[in-house]
Computed example of a mutant assay.
Amino acid sequence: MPLAIMCSGGDAPGMNPAIKKFVDYLYEKGEKPYFVYNGLDGLIDGKIHPATHKDVGGILHRGGAIIRSSRSKRFYEYEYRKQAYENLKKHDITGLVVLGGDGSFRAMEKMSQEFPLNFVGIPTTIDNDIYGTDTCLGVDTALNVIRDALDKIRDTASTFSRAFVVEVMGRECGYLAVVSAITSGAEICLVPEVDFNWHVAREHLKREIRHGRNYVLAIVAEGTKMTFDIADWLENDIGMETRVTVLGHIQRGGSPTVNDRMLAFECTIRAVDHLLSATSSNKVVVVENGNFGMKEIDEIVNNKYQIDPELLGMLNRLD
Rank of each mutant, 00 (worst) to 15 (best):
T141P: 10
P50I: 09
R62I: 01
D155W: 09
G103I: 14
Y131R: 03
R74I: 00
P116K: 06
C136P: 08
D129A: 03
I66M: 10
K152W: 08
T135H: 02
L117G: 03
I153P: 10
D148P: 00
G57Y: 15
T125P: 10
R147M: 15
D155I: 07
E79Q: 13
P123R: 11
K47Q: 13
T156W: 08
I93E: 14
K47W: 06
Y76K: 11
D155K: 04
R154Y: 14
V139P: 02
V56L: 08
T159V: 01
K47M: 12
D134N: 15
N87Y: 07
N144P: 04
V97N: 05
I130F: 04
A84G: 08
F164P: 03
R81S: 06
N144Y: 13
K73L: 14
L88Q: 09
A149H: 10
Y85A: 09
F75V: 03
S72T: 03
A163K: 02
T141R: 11
P123I: 11
E86H: 04
A65V: 00
K89S: 12
S70W: 06
H91W: 12
I126N: 02
I59M: 10
G46P: 02
H49I: 07
V145A: 08
S104A: 15
L117Q: 01
T135M: 07
G101H: 11
E86T: 02
F119C: 05
N87R: 08
G64E: 09
R106K: 15
V97I: 15
Y78A: 11
G58L: 11
A51C: 11
A65W: 00
D55L: 01
E77Q: 11
G132K: 11
I67T: 03
K90I: 01
K47A: 09
G121E: 03
F105W: 06
G57W: 14
S104K: 02
I130M: 13
S69Q: 01
G100Q: 06
T135F: 09
Y78D: 10
